[in-house]
Structures are given as structure tokens and as C-alpha cells.
Design a protein around this nucleic acid. Sequence first.
DNA 1: CTCTGTGAAGAAGTTCACAGCA
DNA 2: TGCTGTGAACTTCTTCACAGAG
Lengths: 207, 207
Amino acid sequence: MRYRKIPDESIRRLPIYLRGLLLLSEQGARSVSSHKLAQRVHLNPHQIRKDFSYFGAFGTPGVGYTVATLTKQIRAILKLGVTRKAALVGAGRLGSALLGYPGFRMYGFEIAAVFDNNPKKIGKKFGGITIENTSRLKTLKSRKIGLAIIATPAQAAQETVDRLVDAGISGILNFAPRHLAVPKKVKVITIDIAMEFARLPYYLPAS
Amino acid sequence: MRYRKIPDESIRRLPIYLRGLLLLSEQGARSVSSHKLAQRVHLNPHQIRKDFSYFGAFGTPGVGYTVATLTKQIRAILKLGVTRKAALVGAGRLGSALLGYPGFRMYGFEIAAVFDNNPKKIGKKFGGITIENTSRLKTLKSRKIGLAIIATPAQAAQETVDRLVDAGISGILNFAPRHLAVPKKVKVITIDIAMEFARLPYYLPAS
DNA sequence: CTCTGTGAAGAAGTTCACAGCA
DNA sequence: TGCTGTGAACTTCTTCACAGAG
């Protein structure tokens, strides 16, 4: 394999492959072809092979891919090999749902701290974790927490981000419907739920 | 303007523009240039003008766009002109968060029914709405509910979708981490929260 | 002169087609 | 034969550059 710029879209698909592989593994499959994996995740085999080819040659011609090996490779590419601690900021309804969300653990994430600025909530237990004052965000660095999830109201999001960046956070999953300004070294992924919903009617048949 | 295929990516950006325009409007702006709007939403002016050009010419050369007019145009393109009723399936933590989510109303959505298959929940009030048995999903057609939000566990998602499709639902926002099989006339947008999080470490500096 | 609208150039991403290994 | 890995063709999307309206 020669070097080529890796499409962001390929990275976006890797967790899909990973999920498919985990399922295959549970069902006892030891190896899988690009074609079979494609069926499972509803993408096409060419694309799967192309995506993998950016990172090296993981398969065996005439046979396919070893499920366990491929799983390990993808986890390594995505840097999911270690458990990563994340802070949750915003202990409202969305925060509560995220705290109980089972999907995070599957990729090695652990919500290790919860913050809110509502005095009524601070000190309360929340899914087994004590809610801390947002003034304590600066302790994140010493606590080795490098990721954060923002589930605050939109108005509070930019201020929260600034504090998180000061505290050395390097990756943020943002649910506030706002563009967040951050230094280049910090990666932000925004999920704007209402906005996704907003483009649904466009695709509906004229009624 | 001549006909050209409209990029899905342009459609994806329209709600972003809409949000920016609503904010500008609140601040009393009556007109805006592509450059100013671009600053606000952190995209580039060329792209904004190009996106609009797919749908016609909305601006005035030398001046810019009238905020109110452009807002109306975008709402029309996205078919957000009417209030649309949506059913929420799954009254767990995520469902609860979605029910209270303020962003939906901004685009004209109203959650008009909530379903769950847990007998303990059925009949209870949930954000002012009585939770119904999922067996009643078939009533959606007569109730003029054409959209649905799936917030069930992954295993229940495909069965739920099948029932929704039977009930005449034509657009679905899916939070279950699964590819959903639907007829072509039905549009599904999936938001897989854990998967978005999973690609975050890839972008982190090697530590 | 300012700012829109758009063809054309360029970049990014996907699909094809086939060489080559098992 | 079966399936991978990958250059090349193709398609889609973005950015540029500028004609032309106000």
C-alpha cells in the first residue's frame, strides 16, 4: 500500500464495520468476506475493501478476513484499544439518557465525571456519579479525563467548551445546536438532533 | 437557473442556514450577505450562494438577501411550512429526553403520540402525553401522524419500523444502532450516538 | 464598487475492473 | 475458482473566478 490521504468518510464507516464484526463474532463466525460483511452492514464490498486498503492489507485473497484480526485492526486504527474516560457536562434529560446509554462501553468509553451549574443538582448522585460544580472542570487534566460530552443548553455551550479546552480536553462530542470555536488541536463532533429531523420532510413524497 | 441534481449535502446545510437566519432575525437584521451569513454559520460564502442557486435566485446583486424572504424560501424547500405530527416509539431515557427537546418545535414538529411495549409504562402520562401500547401503532394513519422517532433498544427497532411502515409512516428518525430495512418510499435518517463518539479518538493527537 | 449567480476547474469520494495470490 | 487489493474511471461535491445586476 502506498500512502494516500484517507477519506474522512472511510473513518466514518469504520465503526459500522466494527459493529458488524462484533455481531458476526457473537454468532461464532471466524472469517468473513467483504461481500458477506457488506450484506450485513448494507454497504458495498468494493467500498469495504477500498476502505481497508488505506490502512494496509488485512485479508487473504481467495478466503477473506479473519474476524478477530480485522476487529483488532479496526480498533487500533480508531485508537479504541484503551479505555478512555469522558466527562459529561449538563445533567439534564439528555445528559441522563447519555449516562445510561449502553453503546459507549462497547467502544471502550467510560463516563467518569458529571458536571452541572445548577446548585440544586450539584452534590446529588446521578447514575452512581456525584454531580460536580462546573467550576471544577479545571480538575479534568489531573484526573486524566481527555474527552467530553456537551449536553448543556445552546447558550452555555461555547463557555463550556472554552473551559474544557483550558482543562486540556482534546475531543468533544457536542449535542448543543451551535458551531463551537476551538483550537485546531481539539476535535469536535456535533450531533444536532433537531437539525437532522429538519431535513426529513424534504424527502417525503408531496402530499 | 437550469435543472441540476441537488446535492444531498446542500440539503443537509439548509437547516444550518435556517438556524443562522432565525438568530439574525431575532437580532433585528433585515438583510444579510452570503459573506455575513457564512461568518455566522462557519461555512464559506461560495458554498452558500451555490446551495441557494440550486433552488433559484433569492438575492439581490450588490445588496444581499432579505432575511425574512430567505427564511421563508428555505422553509419551503425543506417543506417545513406546516406543523408535522410525529410519533415517539420508546419511552425510556432517550425517549424522555427527546420529548422534552425544545429544538423540534422550532422546525414545526410536534410529538403527538408516545408508544412503549412495557406494560408498566402503558397508560402513564409522559410529558403530558399518555403512553400507548405499541399494538396501537396501526392507528397512526387515521391520526394523520406521518413521522416517527425510534428510541427503542436495537433489537426492537426493525420490528417497530415494519409496523410504522404498515401504519403509513413516511419519514423516520432512528436512534437505534442498526441499519433499518424499509421500502424505497420511506426515508430513514439514523443517528448513532455511540458510533459518532467512536470516531473521535482517531482524530486525537497520539498520546 | 458591491454582492449575487453560475460555468468551469479542482478536490474528494465511490465504483469498476482486473491483476494476482491462495 | 474465489476473493483481495488497487489503479483508473467515474461521480459527486466544493471552490474559484468572473460576468452582470443594482
